[in-house]
Design a protein around this nucleic acid. Structure first.
Length: 824
RNA sequence: GGGCGAGUGGUGGAAUGGCAGACACGCUGGCUUCAGGUGCCAGUGCUCGCAAGAGCGUGGGGGUUCAAAUCCCCCCUCGCCCACCA
């Protein structure tokens, strides 16, 4: 008896069952470590209900997970919630409700939407980072970092967002603006907690070779961010003083061209070397520089401001006196905060020299020329030969840096040096909704870590969490702040800053493996059995922050003996961004396509399939203006077409005789299995769907031509449904069941590809004459070059283009291509 | 300023040295006595042509090759990243 495709009823029923039964529960340990797949999608931030970005990444991730199960792997595909953070707090302030309430209600919505979408997460492993059972381990890791000297407190200039009223990590400042709210940031001197990620810069760079499953783009983003630069440090002495000062340069070979010297205005040495007269002019100069916004300070457009400090350094290579300047373009927090300026070969120094009438001396000459420094219109940064450089004259560019640095080392005035753009990770936040930093301050003992046994330091709930900009909101919770010193028992006060939420997401993938553990963040044996993550899926927006922090944590875990793999995510797929009209979807822009509406009108299967069919998963996707209706034109009708086909053949009797049409359809089926399997392996879901559409079209054509072999049609239907199951889990499961199969299609075995059955006996041979296709001729696959030529020559089309001329060259790629060249 | 990536029909896209435009959407026509945002079938890159066919065609220009969307060089446009980082 035929049934109509009632997607709403089917999806609701199965979603409820899957939620209840949790059929995707992963074993504590994979049965065979060589046959496991830990598949992870970046855990969502519960800022509301599910949006199309979640739909996209969940559809991709879930197709990968379901496919892996059907291929026989032990699959772990967990879900959790990245639940602490600013948006919850800001939304809560705006609505006058507690961040916890807002967060938990969003989590409920997201969770039920994920279930409605048909995601096959192991629901038994869910956690929220704002649960004390989770964040107590953030605190534990903080203590471990502290013990290892990797967590430290220092007073330093920090980026302050006046709107969010908190400090930000370097990574959260984009072009001088707060990454979240686009407010220009300010620099404030504050005492803050840092993680010493800079110690790991080299490993973060070098270990990236392990990450073969990363795109070049992503690796480049990480490399840029770490920003390793190699060069040399060179020591200068200050004339008439015993003070020495060291500069960092990537071009030690231009040392003879240094015509002035620049200290950052913040450099402590400045105050020590200037006389009273200069000091009077320097103080307002420095104030001017400090008043500049970060955008101005680092703008290349603006003229460079500077002043002569009235003192000289001595060039260690030739004893030359070099005037010391200070200038706004030299930054205190890179290198040594001081530079030797070589205007002939550095554009910034060149501009400054021209503005302040300083000498430009060429010491690297391009081939066959020695330009006059006074006439240069820009710095020459290219290759050349060293000139005006004493004993090094004539040294070619490729040896110059090495030879000069070796010599500096031998003279004890310089050495090889490396610098990084990466700064230590500032983890303090002056906000409420985060993990309290487990430190207390005692008058007697200073900063004292909270003993492990006293964890968690529970975030108090009854707090006025409105940020004031002065102190952390937690500072107002006086009864919470007051505690006793763990060492002496005297009254002490708690640290009131909370941790950056990127701490939460730096190790969460281990917690999934052992989510109930209340004695440790996780059991390393269990973790090592599942790690590393075989496929990580998530947005490219996490290319620098989350991925660098989590890789750093992993390296510390390895040192602690809690992890084995130096890299946690060797394979990472960055899905494209979903937009409409080129802009991020949002309610305020009015370009929101609501997944709930798609569920109601077309169903989750149609929505998932639509997202996957729209293009490769890594490509951005601009949703058509018409909104969800697009699903109703594209994948919803096709799913109904598949349903009708599979439903119709359920009770068809097998044919007693089978002929060419049957052999041909079976061949198409096996060709499809081969190609779709390859597509799944490459995450090429859009082409996989196209192949399945072709198979469906071919099967309809077979039926239309009178074909009715029920056995064959059920074979086709079964493999079609299996190949579709990871992408459209509901409909395929229902058809599988009503076709009388046992168990779930999602735990059935992937269809077997039989190359013998997929092989074509005959193919179309393309014949080109002088590069142009002139005929296509059916030939047996086994044909050789001679046979190909013979067939080609019997084609009137080919002969007419040969024009009776002698064939000068034959290129044959049997059996598909024959290229003939004749003189023109 | 530096680096990386992309540019293919009306649209999403396919093809990574071998028939450009698979598969879809849209459009055109037909069928289903059709109320259709349904279903089925056919056509659909551009130009010329009744047709057979021919020519042109993957941002522009050049090159390598029997053969180029694909490889190389130059240019244009867009996107992303970094950026007074010495």
């Amino acid at each position: 008896m035929e049934r109509s495709y009632d997607f709403a009823e089917i999806e609701q029923r199965l979603a409820a069952r899957w939620t209840e039964e949790n059929p995707w529960r992963a074993p504590r340990l994979p049965r065979d470590p060589a046959n496991k797949r830990y598949l992870l999608t970046m855990f969502p931030y519960p800022s509301g209900d599910m949006h199309m970005g979640h739909v996209e990444v969940f559809s991709i991730h879930d197709a990968i997970a379901r496919y892996a199960r059907m291929r026989g792997f032990d699959v772990l595909s967990p879900l959790g919630f990245d639940a602490f953070g600013l948006p919850a707090e800001n939304a809560a302030i705006k609505r006058g409700i507690h961040p916890k309430k807002w967060t938990y209600s969003n989590i409920e919505k997201l969770l039920s939407s994920a279930q409605r979408l048909g995601c096959s997460f192991d629901w038994s492993r869910i956690f929220r980072t704002c649960d004390p059972e989770y964040y107590r381990w953030n605190q534990w890791f903080f203590l471990k970092m502290y013990e290892r000297g990797l967590a430290y407190r220092k007073e330093a200039p920090a980026w302050w967002c006046p709107n969010d009223k908190t400090v930000l990590a370097n990574e959260q400042v984009v072009n001088g603006l707060c990454e979240r709210c686009d407010t220009p940031v300010e620099k404030r001197w504050l005492t803050q907690w840092f993680f010493k990620i800079s110690d790991y810069a080299d490993r973060l760079l070098d270990d990236m070779d392990v990450n073969v499953g990363w795109s070049d783009r992503l690796k480049m983003l990480q490399r840029n961010w770490i920003g390793r630069s190699t060069g040399a440090e060179i020591d200068f002495t200050i004339e008439g003083s015993s003070e020495r000062i060291t500069v960092y340069t990537t071009r030690p070979d231009t040392l003879w061209g240094a015509t002035f010297f620049v200290l950052a205005p913040e450099h402590p040495l400045v105050e020590r070397i200037v006389d009273e007269d200069v000091r009077h002019r320097f103080v307002p100069f420095k104030q001017d520089v400090e008043r500049m916004t970060e955008i101005d300070r680092t703008s290349t457009e603006r003229p460079k401001k500077g002043m002569f400090l009235g003192r000289y350094v001595v060039n260690p290579v030739n004893g030359e006196r070099i005037p010391i300047w200070t200038a706004d373009y030299v930054l205190m927090d890179y290198g040594t905060g001081a530079i030797m300026a070589v205007p002939a070969h550095d554009q910034r120094d060149f501009e400054f020299a021209r503005q302040h009438d300083l000498e430009v001396r060429v010491v690297i000459a391009p081939e066959g020329a020695e330009p006059d420094g006074a006439l240069l219109s820009e710095a020459y940064a290219g290759d050349g030969v060293m000139v005006n450089s004493g004993p090094f004259d004539g040294t070619p560019a490729e040896d110059a840096v090495r030879k000069v640095t070796d010599w500096l080392e031998s003279q004890g005035i310089g050495r090889y040096a490396t610098n990084y753009r990466l700064r230590d990770w500032l983890i303090s936040r002056q906000r409420y909704w985060g993990t309290p930093i487990p430190i207390v301050y005692c008058e007697e003992h200073g900063e004292v870590p909270v003993p492990e046994a006293d964890l968690p330091v529970v975030l108090p709930e009854d707090v006025d969490f409105t940020p004031t900009g002065e102190a952390s909101p937690l500072a107002t919770a006086e009864s919470w702040v007051q505690t006793v010193c763990p060492i002496c028992g005297a009254p002490a006060r708690r640290e009131t800053d909370t941790m950056d939420t990127f701490v939460d997401s730096s190790w969460y993938f281990h917690r999934y493996l052992d989510p109930e553990n209340d004695a440790a963040p996780f059991d390393p044996d269990v973790s090592n059995a599942w790690m590393p993550i075989d496929q990580y899926t998530g947005g490219i927006e996490h290319a620098v922050m989350h991925l660098i922090y989590a890789r750093f944590f992993q390296k510390v875990l390895v040192e602690m003996g809690m992890a084995r793999d130096p890299e946690p995510f060797p394979a990472l797929l960055n899905q494209g961004t979903v937009t409409m009209g080129g802009k991020r979807m949002s309610k305020s822009r009015g370009n929101l396509v609501d997944p709930q509406e798609a569920f109601e009108r077309y169903g989750a299967d149609a929505l998932r399939l639509y997202m996957l069919f729209s293009g490769p998963p890594w490509a951005d996707f601009d949703w058509p203006e018409e909104g969800v209706t697009a699903i109703g034109r594209v994948t919803a009708p096709w799913l109904a077409r598949v349903w009708r086909l599979c439903d119709e053949v359920r009770d068809l009797p097998p044919s007693s005789t089978t002929g060419d049409a049957e052999a041909s359809l079976r061949k198409r089926m096996h060709q499809t299995i081969g190609r779709v399997t390859a597509d799944y392996d490459e995450f090429s879901f859009n082409t996989a769907i196209a192949r399945l559409m072709e198979l469906v079209n071919d099967t309809y054509r077979y039926r239309a031509a009178g074909g009715s072999d029920g056995a064959l049609l059920r074979e086709v239907s079964e493999s079609l449904l299996k190949m579709l199951a990871p992408m459209a889990p509901f409909m395929t499961e229902e058809l599988w069941a009503i076709s009388g199969n046992e168990g779930s299609i999602h735990s059935s075995a992937w269809p077997t590809f039989d190359p013998d059955l997929a092989r074509d006996e005959e193919v179309m041979m393309v014949v080109q004459v002088n590069g142009k296709v002139r005929d296509t001729i059916p030939v047996p696959v086994t044909i050789d070059q001679e046979g190909m030529l013979e067939r080609a020559m019997s084609s009137t089309k080919v002969r007419s283009h040969l024009d009776g001329k002698e064939i000068a060259k034959v290129v044959a790629k049997p059996p598909k291509l024959l290229s003939l060249v004749v003189p023109r």
